[in-house]
């Protein structure tokens, strides 16, 4: 077990083993392994350019990793080897959904339509791959009504119900972030990957986001993998933190453990390798003085 992990049950929903990704001469990810537990909010943090988005793109099939194995295990025990699947199959079959660092909404479609597009596969089946739906079969009408209800549920949760009929491109930035998350949830995922969802949000929007993420985990039992480079957000809501620097894992554990890991502090303060020893000593000193006060 990784140090500092306090989860008792060991039921990983996602297992990444020896993942490597090379772009030409650049080793963006180098022999990276971690596990995300079912029901947890796992955070993947690290400085800019550490390779976090690349890990996401490998997990969700947008990149084919150079090496490594990514296993997704669903609730009913079905396993998927994600590195062998196409991106859309990963969402459709393995039930892994994602958002993007630079928001990717269908800006010319309305907020509601964005959420209906996300239910494409369910609706396609219900409409008999369009043919039965065109002929007006009742099964499609029913499914179509249900899909609107699902959309409404997520609109309520994301506080977007008032803007349902407006074009997605017309929403303010924070609302677009929440809409992207709501849209990903409309695919019915078991595992949700969020790429810097709090980036560029003001404190109030940030709070609304945290609330949305907590309620996603609580009400729909979806496990979350979250990228952040802002430590404070992560510490608030995550159960488990993995730290990446230059494509390598430098720390892995509970938020408290990671927060005090000298390597992490060094990475975040941006010190040279040979200075790390010094920093560790300093931290130990500080901790001693703090311990003295208690």
């Amino acid at each position: 077990m990784t140090p500092g992990t306090n989860t008792m049950t060991n039921d990983p929903i996602l297992k990444v083993e020896h993942l490597s990704m090379r772009f030409g001469g650049l080793m963006a990810i180098n022999d990276f392994s971690f596990e995300a537990q079912r029901g947890d909010i796992t955070a993947l943090i690290g400085p800019n350019g550490a390779g976090k988005t690349t890990v996401f793109n490998c997990v969700t099939g947008f990149y084919k990793p150079t090496m490594g194995m990514i296993t997704m295990r669903q609730k009913e025990g079905k396993s998927f080897l994600l590195e062998r699947m196409a991106d859309f199959e990963i969402t459709r079959d393995a039930k892994v959904a994602r958002t993007f660092q630079n928001i990717r909404l269908f800006s010319g479609l309305t907020v509601l339509e964005n959420l209906l597009v996300a239910q494409h596969n369910m609706l396609m089946k219900a409409s008999g791959y369009t043919f039965l739906g065109l002929l007006g079969f009742p099964a499609y009408k029913k499914a179509s009504g249900e899909s609107v209800e699902i959309a409404k549920y997520w609109l309520e949760k994301a506080h977007l119900i008032e803007r349902a009929d407006d074009p997605a491109g017309d929403l303010p930035y924070g609302a677009q972030r929440r809409l992207e998350i709501a849209r990903a949830m409309c695919t019915g995922p078991e595992f949700l990957c969020l790429d810097e969802p709090a980036a560029g949000l003001n404190p109030r929007e940030s709070l609304a986001l945290n609330e949305l993420l907590r309620s996603i985990r609580k009400d729909s039992g979806t496990s979350i993998l979250l990228i952040e480079h802002d430590m404070s957000v992560v510490m608030e809501i995550s159960d488990h933190v993995v730290v990446l620097e230059y494509g390598q894992k430098i720390s892995d554990g509970t938020p408290d453990y990671v927060k005090n890991d000298p390597k992490v502090i060094a990475a975040y303060l941006g010190v040279e390798d040979d200075e790390v020893e010094e920093v560790i000593e300093e931290i130990e000193e500080i901790e001693e003085t703090q311990g003295g006060k208690h």
């Binding site: 959904a97 996300a118 409409s127």
Partner: peptide
């Protein structure tokens, strides 16, 4: 129908479509 919405979504953003 879902197929028509998917067409328009495709016009708007193909990568987002695949992610869904």
């Amino acid at each position: 129908m879902p197929i028509g919405r998917a067409w328009e979504a495709l016009r708007e953003d193909e990568i987002a479509c695949r992610s869904l």
